[in-house]
Design a binder for these strands. Sequence first.
DNA 1: GTCTATAAAGAGATAGAC
DNA 2: GTCTATCTCTTTATAGAC
Lengths: 199, 199
Amino acid sequence: MKPDGVVTAERLLDLAATLFWENGYAATTTRELAEALGVQKASLYYHMASKEDLLYEICMESLVNIHEAVSQAVGEVRDPLRRVQLMIRAHVRSMLEDREKHATMLTELKALSPGRRAEVVARRDEYETLVRGILADAQDATVLTSELPVKQLELGLLNLLNWTIFWYRPGGDLSPDEVASLLERIYITGVRRFWRGCG
Amino acid sequence: MKPDGVVTAERLLDLAATLFWENGYAATTTRELAEALGVQKASLYYHMASKEDLLYEICMESLVNIHEAVSQAVGEVRDPLRRVQLMIRAHVRSMLEDREKHATMLTELKALSPGRRAEVVARRDEYETLVRGILADAQDATVLTSELPVKQLELGLLNLLNWTIFWYRPGGDLSPDEVASLLERIYITGVRRFWRGCG
DNA sequence: GTCTATAAAGAGATAGAC
DNA sequence: GTCTATCTCTTTATAGAC
């Protein structure tokens, strides 16, 4: 959550993400938001159009952020395996740095109206396309196994990475980078193409 | 969801799990539950004490079920690696067969009152102890890597398995057993202890 | 075991002053 | 940009008849 100096709209969005994640979107009331911001209920409506708008913006922002983070991380790098490793690191780091927003996007999507939900899902599909492309390149370069279709490589990877938001706590046993190292190690070893023969 | 013949209390629990999972606990109203059951709102209270009771029972049931499923699956088997494989299969199968309850337990826990939440968390810890024990045995038998502490083996495994409830759909591309095979393959390859040298 | 009727509280959002 | 006051609707749960 951002400090007092920042514009109220931005503080409201961060605060909403925290409360939505901790208590759920439907269970979080405008009264709680107002109290935590230190204003009256009605004052919220100067900064937002509705409670649902907050949820929509949280979802979109988390997806824009992680897409940018991964795009930039793989950026100029050409080595296909290295690109997979950098993607994993950037995904985990972005997800954990932006934990409240990302978790809210992943768990409260169902609370959005159909139209807006579709917009968020479309954005998420775009991100998954980026991920799948990086995996497909590594597969084509024969550094990842060809025993599994790329869609299954993607499902396996996102399974392994995303569940982290449910147990990760800042200041816990593992730092974001340690989490990334652990998951990267398991995944890469699990799906890398090895030449098993001797010679 | 169970058919009409079954006692109403049980049908109510199954129905609640479906609605809680689809729309969230807080967003699901007693009106919707009553309508879907085909009775009046007030009639619900003959079968339940409160809406929160339903959530509590759903959470407990899903955990009792998965604990039993995994216990029985590894049952008499002694081979440590085989036990890990059987655990993965039973976990995935139980989670997907009981999808609504399991998903509700995993995502709506925060809606329970502190006391009941603590009870559910204690049950979940028990299950995780079972999982960790099976992994530790395999590690001691040198069939799983010793490079990672058993706690991290557990985090990695549950990450890989649990996220499945967010995308699995009955009748989709993959059957529960195919999902289990995919995840088992990635995990076992990822954490198995290999002798890399030749000879 | 299910009904009609209603209580009591809390929700999101708006009007209009300052 | 924030306030007080309020509107309107929905919520969970109960009372008591059948």
